[in-house]
Design a protein around this nucleic acid. Structure first.
Length: 413
DNA sequence: GAACCATCGGCTACCACATACACCG
DNA sequence: ATCGGTGTATGTGGTAGCCGATGGT
């Protein structure tokens, strides 16, 4: 991955598609993501110009380079003079915008667009950039470029921003000195780290809004290891629930969705050793853990419960994963690279180190034997499978009658 | 409590074909 | 050692079908 487009293998890659885990040139980006309605929803962003393997997170105005979170941290460490560089968040996009449209998303972006209007725009005449700040939740059925807005906030200003929607998107790594963000209307989508003020209600925030942005299905949900890892049961969660923890977070007693999310909260992965000591179980209902133990992607949701002075981290890291593999997922890198930014509810000495390391080792071993997620190894094959005609879900020979065409979504017979 | 039935969810085989890979000359 | 040709294995996604778990009667 990197340097050369994963699809055509010819042009230099420019954008990164997280869904496909692929680096693509603009042309292939359009081709691939105009294939069908689902692919149009893929969130893409610029490729990090330093490592050429991860999605860019910020744009350094001084160096005029787009950087992933890891490279940003490396290059703008507080101990260096570069830490004062002005940086702006890089927005992700979906749909298949033209370079002109991309320029409107990224003010620094300029790329000759020989193709003129994007392919799907020509076909559909539907593409438009939605800059509706209020409409930060997107309807996947609406064929617009999801141009989600990030509200830049002060690191500790958790609860007094964006009160209208009740929560805030921010692309700022919270434990880092906030970059001096330039004036930027929009922010990234997938790097957003939602914050919650559990003691507050959220007028105007529907559950759909909440859960959509949680990306619950992408959260690492792995509860069954909790006991073996922590050597304690989940009793704390009931306390938390009684204290309004989960209900405050989700504003609902319906644990079907909340379960999934809070199970992610206790899914402290072995690679995040700091987390092991730091977090408390956030919910009960362990019975459903088995049903949600699949690890989907590298998403991370980082909740700041300012009221309780505690934080819950939702990490999708796998035990075998390196920091680099997940440097694009915000706080996950943070967990790997530095001290946990929260105040541990239990101290380091509360769990004997031998027991802990023992538990971590057992946890890692068990995890090795488990296959959590399906990783797309070949983006080109995925792209082809995405557009291949089918009959009852099965691929059909080219030219044969089909009952489903992802391109036309029409029947041939 | 046991037996039966309906429902639900998880898992897997299936398909075509481009591509990765190994092997040989 | 390198290159080109050939054959085989792999991987990709949506669906049907199987099977076990669960709940109601």
């Amino acid at each position: 991955m990197g340097y050369i487009c994963d699809f055509c293998g010819d042009q230099p890659s420019l954008v990164y598609c997280r869904s496909d885990a692929a680096c693509l040139c603009l042309s292939c980006d359009r081709n691939v993501h105009s294939a069908n309605a689902l692919s149009k929803r893929h969130s893409r962003t610029l490729l990090c110009e330093r490592c050429n393997s991860q999605p860019a997170f910020v744009r350094c105005a001084e160096e005029k380079v787009s950087l992933c979170q890891n490279c940003d941290w490396m290059g703008h460490d507080a101990s260096t003079s570069n830490s004062t560089h002005k940086r702006q968040t890089i927005n992700s996009y979906s749909g298949c915008p033209s370079s002109g449209e991309l320029s409107s998303i990224w003010s620094f972006f300029s790329q000759p667009d020989s193709a003129g209007e994007s392919a799907c725009e020509q076909e559909l005449g539907l593409m438009s950039i939605s800059e509706n700040i209020e409409n930060t939740s997107w309807d996947p059925t609406v064929n617009t470029i999801s141009h989600n807005i990030a509200v830049v906030v002060e690191v500790n200003d958790d609860c007094n921003v964006d009160k209208g929607s009740g929560w805030t998107r921010t692309s700022i790594p919270e434990h880092r000195p906030a970059p001096q963000l330039l004036d930027q209307a929009a922010g990234s989508t997938y790097t957003s780290l939602p914050k919650f003020c559990p003691q507050t209600k959220y007028p105007g925030l529907s559950e759909d809004d909440l859960y959509d942005d949680f990306n619950i299905d992408e959260v690492d949900l792995n509860l069954e290891n909790y006991e073996e890892l922590f050597g304690v049961t989940l009793n704390h969660s009931e306390e938390l629930l009684e204290n309004g923890g989960i209900d405050s977070l989700f504003g609902t007693k319906d644990m079907s969705a909340a379960d999934s999310t809070c199970q992610g909260a206790v899914a402290a992965e072995g690679s995040s050793i700091g987390l092991v000591n730091a977090i408390q179980p956030a919910c009960s209902n362990a019975a459903s853990a088995d049903s949600v133990m699949s690890n989907k992607t590298d998403s991370i949701l980082y909740f700041t419960t300012k009221h309780a002075h505690s934080s819950l981290s939702f990490s999708g890291l796998t035990g075998e994963s390196s920091a680099g593999d997940y440097q694009d997922c915000g706080a996950s890198s943070m967990l790997l690279m530095g001290e946990p930014p929260w105040c541990p509810p239990c101290t380091e000495s509360s769990i004997p180190s031998a027991t802990r390391s023992d538990a971590v080792m057992r946890y890692k071993e068990k995890k090795k034997t488990r296959k959590f997620e399906k990783r797309v190894r070949y983006a080109s094959r995925k792209a082809r499978a995405d557009v291949r005609k089918r009959v009852k879900g099965r691929f059909v020979k080219a030219g044969d009658a089909y009952d489903y065409d992802p391109l036309n979504q029409s029947r041939s017979c």
